[in-house]
Design a binder for these strands. Structure first.
Lengths: 188, 188
DNA sequence: CATATACTGTACATCGTGTCCAGTAATATG
DNA sequence: CATATTACTGGACACGATGTACAGTATATG
C-alpha cells in the first residue's frame, strides 16, 4: 500500500486520496482505514519508510564537504525519488490539518536539521565553523532553498544547487581563517 | 468578497472554500463563480490586491540595510497580515493545480525576487556586492527561510529572522572588502 | 417601456471522506 | 474437529464541497 501511495504521489501529488491508494494497491478502501487514519498518514509512513537510511553522513570530510554532500543527497532524494512528491502532498495536507504539519516537523525536518547542526557543532570543534553561529538560522538557510524550489518550482532542483547554496552561505558559517572554499568558481 | 477570503484564510487557511467565502461575504455562491473560476483565484486576487504596495524599497540605504529591510517587511507581511494565511492556502492549492503554482510564481515570487536582484545589482555597481555572485541562488537563500518557516512553523517568524539570515548570507554576498556588517553581535 | 447587468436561491450531478455493517477466508487455539 | 481471532471484502450511508444550470428579481440605462 505504501508503494501505491508513492506511485500515486508521483503521478500528481494531489491524486493520492484514500480511494486511489486502495484501488492502486488492489485493496478495499475499508482496509486502508483499518491501518491508517487518513491518506496523509499513509503518505507520511511511505515517506519515512523509504528514507530511513538517508539521515547519516560520512564523517571523514571537511565540514564544507560534509554540508555540501548532505544537501546534495537531499536534492537527489526529493528530485529523483517519490520522496519529493510525497513531501509536496504532505505539505499541502498540513495546511488545514496541523497534526500533519507537526508530524512533518517532528519526523522529517527535525532529524535532518539535527544532523546538520551536529555537523556544524563538529565543525566548530575543529575550528572550521565560526563561534557564535546561530545554528538554527544556519540550518534554515541551508535547507530552505531546497524546499522552496520543491514547492514552487520557480527554479529547478539542479545538481549544482548545493554548491550554489554553499557558495553564498559558507563564508558566513566558516571561521574567518577558513578560506578553503570561500571563493567559488563562478565559471563552472 | 476579497475581505471575506482574507478573513477566512486567517481563521484557518483550509476553510476558505467557495461556500465559505460566499457565506462570509453575504453573497450567493453563484455570484462568486461569476467573477472567479475557483476559490484559489479569489485567494490569489485577495493576496495581490492587498500587497501591491509592498514591492518597492527605500533606495537611500546600503545594500545590507536595504536587503535586511526588505526581508523584514516580508516577515511582518506574512506574519501580521492575512497575506501569510493566503499564501499558505495558495501553496496548498498549488499542489494538484499547477496553474495555481504558476500564478504564485509569476505574480508573487517573481516580482519580489526581481526587486531583490535589483538591489544586488545596484550593490554590485556600488562595490558592495561581490562580482560573480549568482543572483538567483542569492535570492533563493535570502527568501527561502521565510517561506520555509511560514509553511512548516518549525521556528517562529521573529523580528530577528531577517538579521539572522543576513548574518549567515551577507559575507557570501558582500564584496570581500565590505566588512560593514560582517560580524553580527551574537549576544543580542 | 424595454433591455442589459448583477445578483438570488434552488436544484442537481459528481466526487471524496469517513463510518458502519454483514459476510468471507485464513489461521491459530482449545 | 470445533471455535475464536484476525484480516479482508464490498456495499451502503451521511456528509460536505465543487461546479453547473436555470428560473426569477432588482436596478439602472437606452
Amino acid at each position: 500500500m505504501l508503494d501505491a501511495a508513492a506511485e500515486l504521489a508521483l503521478e500528481g501529488a494531489a491524486g493520492a486520496g484514500v480511494d486511489a491508494i486502495a484501488a492502486r494497491a488492489g485493496v478495499s478502501r475499508t482496509t486502508v482505514y483499518k491501518w491508517w487514519p487518513s491518506a496523509a498518514a499513509v503518505l507520511l509512513e511511505g515517506l519515512l519508510e523509504r528514507t530511513r537510511d538517508t539521515l547519516e553522513s560520512p564523517a571523514s570530510e571537511t565540514t564544507h564537504e560534509a554540508l555540501t554532500d548532505y544537501l546534495a543527497r537531499l536534492v537527489t532524494l526529493v528530485r529523483d525519488t517519490p520522496a519529493g512528491a510525497l513531501l509536496r502532498g504532505l505539505t499541502a495536507a498540513s495546511v488545514g490539518d496541523s497534526r500533519v504539519g507537526l508530524a512533518i516537523v517532528d519526523e522529517w525536518l527535525a532529524p535532518r536539521r539535527s544532523a546538520v547542526v551536529a555537523l556544524l557543532v563538529r565543525g566548530a570543534g575543529r575550528g572550521e565553523v565560526r563561534f557564535g553561529l546561530d545554528y538554527e538560522a544556519a540550518a534554515d538557510v541551508l535547507f530552505a532553498p531546497i524546499y522552496y524550489r520543491l514547492m514552487y518550482g520557480h527554479q529547478p532542483l539542479t545538481d549544482r544547487l548545493p554548491a550554489e547554496i554553499m557558495a553564498v552561505c559558507w563564508p558566513g558559517i566558516a571561521a574567518s581563517e577558513d578560506l578553503s572554499a570561500q571563493a567559488p568558481n563562478p565559471a563552472d
